[in-house]
Amino acid sequence: MKIRIKFSKYGTMKYIGHLDMMRFFQKAIRRAGIDVRYSEGFSPHQIMSFAAPLGVGMESCGEYMDIEVLSMTTAQEMKEALNRVMVEGVEILSVSILPDHVQNAMASVAAASYLLQKKEGDYPVDELTGKLEAFLAQETIPYTKETKKGVKELNLKEGIYELEAESNRAIRMLVNASSSGNIKPGMVMDAFSAFAGVEIPPSAYRIIKLETYMDPAANGKDRQGSHKLIPLDAVQ
């Protein structure tokens, strides 16, 4: 049976990297006594897949992972059992039983929404939020990505679905998060600060991932047109 688990990650847990979170959950699942499925062989491991890795330093209330179990009581009980063995900074938000035909979490991801909150700092964020509309209205939104192999010129325009000021201290965005077109919120902020002509260092804002979405109609491919996005645990 496939199970999808939604969890949050916040506070000091933002310093724990993706691989360590996987190890944390493997141990937590054993502590919770969940009848999880293992691979075969001399060092069996749990069948587990994460939707998308969350960068160190980011918080989230919309993280997902899939596991497979051999038996279980109810989703609610599994959620409670897991929450009993969590630490401060990780909370299980939902547990859902997946229909067999559903793709795994990682392949399903189409988009993610983020909230960027201003931390202390003296850059003029109030003025800046006023420029968001003009930024988004550009023909193209150029971004230079530095990779190990060199630099790559990207156009972010297609992948930014929504971008708006939540208040004069926070910006909310919905962006492509699929494996082929993933846009990190920091990339949008970099492009925006270049557009607005102000230096906004990454340390100036706190990033919280709000939700991870799939596009049931796109079948895992990049989002085309205006398909309806649904949260990863809203699958039927």
């Binding site: 000091t12 310093y15 141990k27 937590a28 502590r31 401060e88 900074g89």
Partner: peptide, 10 residues
Amino acid sequence: KPARYIGNEV
């Protein structure tokens, strides 16, 4: 490895 310094372990 900031996890060396934050505590909060199980």
